[in-house]
Design a protein around this nucleic acid. Structure first.
Lengths: 110, 110
DNA sequence: AGAATACATCGATATTTATCGATCTTTATT
DNA sequence: AATAAAGATCGATAAATATCGATGTATTCT
C-alpha cells in the first residue's frame, strides 16, 4: 500500500450539503446554456431593449420552428429567460440570472 | 396577413457578433456544469482549502473510476477546474470561473 | 362560423453523452 | 527488472438530446 502525500484521504473537507434539488436545478440551469444555438438565442434576446417575439427568433438559425420552440422551452424552464404571452405571440426577455450567466460564459478573460 | 404588434419583425436589434469560437466555448463551459454529478464534484473541489486528489473523488458517487476520470476531464477542459500533476496523483482546484459559475448556479435567489 | 396565424406537442430518427469493464501509460517502490 | 498504484483511454452499450415534419391548440381576423 502506497502512502498518499499528506494523507489526502483523511483530510477531505465535506462540502456543506446542498439539497439534491438544488444540485439538479444548478445542472439544469447550466444545461440550458450548454448548446451553441441556445447561447446564440439568449444572446439575441439579451441584445433587445424590449421583449422579443418568438417569431423573430425562428428562421435565424436554419432550424425548424419546432426546434426553436423546444430550445425556448428549455431556456424558460431554466429561468434564464422569462416569457410573456400576448395574444398569439410569446415575448421573451432575459432574466437577471440569464444576463449574469451569459456575461460570464462569454467573457474571454475567464 | 396579420400584422404583428409594433412591427417586431423590423425592430430586432442585432447582437454584437460574437465569434463562433466564443459561442462554442460558452456552450462547452456551461455543458461542463450541466450534469448533477459534475456539479457535486465541483462543489467538493470548491470546499477544499487545498487541491484535491482525484483518488479522493472516486468512490464518493457510486461511479466507476473511468467515469469520474471522464467528468474531471470535461471540467478541466472547460477550465472550471485546474489540474496539477504530482507524481502518481492529479490534484484539482477550482478556478475563478468555476467559483463564479458554481455560486450563481447554486444560488436559490436567482 | 370559418380561415389563418403563432406556437406547442407528438412521434420518429440521428447524434451525443454517461457509464462500465478492460486495458494502457506513467510513475513510484522494492 | 519486476511489481504496484493512479489515472487515462478504448470499445461497447444504454440513456439523453437535437432535430424534423406532421399535427394539435389557442387566438385573432373576416
Amino acid at each position: 500500500m502506497r502512502k498518499r502525500p499528506e494523507n489526502t484521504c483523511c483530510s477531505v473537507i465535506e462540502p456543506t450539503a446542498a439539497e439534491p434539488s438544488h444540485i439538479i436545478r444548478a445542472a439544469r440551469r447550466a444545461k440550458a446554456l450548454g448548446d451553441p444555438i441556445r447561447v446564440e438565442i439568449l444572446q439575441l434576446i439579451a441584445a433587445q431593449d424590449d421583449p422579443l417575439c418568438a417569431c423573430d427568433i425562428v428562421d435565424r438559425y436554419g432550424k425548424s420552428q419546432s426546434t426553436i420552440s423546444h430550445h425556448l422551452k428549455l431556456l424558460t424552464e431554466a429561468e434564464v429567460v422569462h416569457c410573456q404571452r400576448s395574444g398569439l405571440w410569446r415575448f421573451y426577455k432575459i432574466s437577471a440570472l440569464g444576463t449574469t450567466l451569459l456575461r460570464i460564459l462569454l467573457n474571454p478573460a475567464n
